[in-house]
Amino acid sequence: MATTTTQTDIQQSIVKQQKAEQRKKLILNLVLLALLLLAPAVFYPVFLMKILCFALFAVALNLLLGYTGLLSFGHAAFLAAGSYTTGYLLSSFPGLTTEMGIVVGTVASLVLGLGFGLVAIRRQGIYFAMITLALAQLVYFFFVQAPFTGGEDGMHGVPRGYLLGMVDLNDNTAMYYFVLAVFLAGYLLVQRIVGSPFGQVLKAIKQNEPRAVSLGYNVDRYKLMAFVLSAGLAGLAGSVKTVVFQLASLNDAHWHMSGEVILMTLLGGTGTLLGPVVGAGFVVTLEYQLSQGPLGDWVDPILGAIFVLTVLAFRSGIVGEIQNFMRKNLS
């Protein structure tokens, strides 16, 4: 009898601990939300929107890299697919409301993601990375030559238009809260996915793929689902980015962009929810600060050096390291 009581005691204390942890997380999230809501009072809204777009992009990549263990080196293709589709629609069809342009852009990326996924998941590990990179290069060539993209110049003057035909998005404050809402929706979606039974299977695949197969999961289908979801979210980020900057350009499709979003995710912390957001904030701010100063030409070598340092010294990333530290010292 005595042992059973201790067992229930332990179970109860575990439940209590979990509840306390959840409460802590909730408070942290609420504080962050309040900061994001108040941020435009202090910072330039367009700058904040840039961070939010890239944060969503990195969150999308993290679903794949951090939770499924697949390194995609071609995510720029999805960003660009969303970006160009939305840019084209909003420029060519003035009657279209902004959110319709964004929805169609996201769907375009989903479809492209399905195509990529079907090909790429046939190989694993570093081959997967090389294949996604090569496929993204194919998409890049397409965007260079396609008649509607404006080639090297890109697509300029994309109208921001009206949200639901009512809210004027040319106002930066309105635009900011719209971008924030989209970002939060994407973030919460990923949070929900990661916590769901589906997300648990993804994590199982990351930890040990053969074991997941032997447990009877159709691993390829799960990978494909994760890939398509990630591609769609990346496309959403691209679509919104186009509306914010009224511009779709080849930079979005270049392999450099794929590398940058990996850096954001890795630096912030792969496999943590907040990590990619922190990483995106850090990288965008750094690039902005560097471009203002005398080191404007040194962005690439500095990003490269951060890459090397992160891989060598702190692979868990900023958020990951903080979590490790708290786990060690505060509990």
């Binding site: 590398g259 040194w298 070598p301 500095i302 990003l303 490269g304």
Partner: peptide, 13 residues
């Protein structure tokens, strides 16, 4: 792979 990518960025930059 990421480490060598970083090295490539540094050299090229």
């Amino acid at each position: 792979l990421l480490l060598t990518f970083g090295i490539a960025l540094i050299l090229q930059g």
